[in-house]
Amino acid sequence: MSERFVMRPEHEHPHAPDSSLNFNESVYTNAFDATSPVGGWMRLGNRVNEGHAELSVCLYLPDGRIACQFKRPKITSNERFEAGGLKYQVIDPLRSVSMEYEGDLIIVDDPEALREPQALFAHGPRLPGHVRWLHEAESPVHGGEPVHDGVQTMYGRDFSLGHFNQHSRARGEIRVGDEVWAIDGRGWRDHSWGPRYWQAIYYYRLFIANFSNGDGFMLLKITDRQGKVRREGVLLVDGRYEEILDLDVMTKWTGRQDPAFVRLGVMTERRRVRIDGEINVLAPLRNRRKAGDDVLVSRIAEGFTRFDWEGRKGWGMTEYIERIEDGALAGFPI
Rank of each mutant, 00 (worst) to 15 (best):
L21V: 13
L44V: 13
S26G: 05
I279A: 07
R8V: 12
D184C: 12
A182P: 11
D190R: 00
L21C: 02
L245Y: 07
L206V: 01
I324Q: 04
N22K: 06
G292M: 07
E12D: 13
I321C: 14
N30T: 14
T251D: 11
D238S: 13
A209R: 03
G303Y: 03
A291C: 14
D248W: 05
A31Y: 00
E179G: 04
L219E: 09
S212W: 05
V266P: 08
E302A: 09
A283G: 11
N78A: 13
V131Q: 01
V281E: 02
L44Q: 10
Q118H: 10
L245R: 15
P117T: 03
M1E: 07
R289E: 15
E232M: 10
R115N: 13
A200F: 00
A330Y: 05
R115S: 12
Y197K: 10
A328V: 12
V295A: 04
L220H: 01
L105T: 02
Q89C: 13
G177N: 08
A83K: 03
G239F: 07
V131F: 01
R272M: 10
V295R: 09
L134N: 08
R274S: 14
W188Y: 13
L220N: 02
A182N: 12
V57G: 00
D276L: 04
M7C: 07
Y60K: 04
L134T: 07
G311R: 12
E102F: 05
V273I: 13
Y101C: 08
C68F: 06
L61H: 07
H191M: 02
R271V: 09
T223A: 05
E136M: 03
S2I: 08
M154Q: 08
K87L: 11
G187R: 01
L114K: 00
G311M: 06
F307Y: 15
E3T: 14
G303Q: 06
D18E: 12
K221M: 07
H167F: 10
D178F: 12
N78Q: 07
G265L: 04
I75Y: 08
I244M: 04
I334W: 04
L235E: 07
N78R: 03
D178H: 14
L247T: 08
L296A: 08
M1W: 07
R274E: 15
S192G: 14
D224N: 15
E310S: 14
A119V: 11
A67K: 05
G40P: 12
K87W: 02
G314L: 09
S98I: 11
V38K: 02
A113T: 13
S298V: 15
F23L: 01
N30E: 15
A170D: 02
L285G: 01
A283S: 15
V273Q: 06
N49Y: 03
G239T: 09
T223N: 09
Y320E: 06
D190Y: 00
N78W: 02
G144R: 03
V38M: 04
R312K: 15
A113Q: 13
P195T: 02
G150P: 02
F304G: 02
A113F: 05
R80S: 14
S192Y: 00
G85S: 03
D294N: 11
N78M: 06
Q257M: 15
E79N: 13
V237F: 05
E112S: 14
P125A: 09
I106D: 03
V57K: 00
E79Y: 08
R306P: 01
D276I: 03
M154R: 05
S160A: 10
E145M: 13
N46F: 08
Y101D: 09
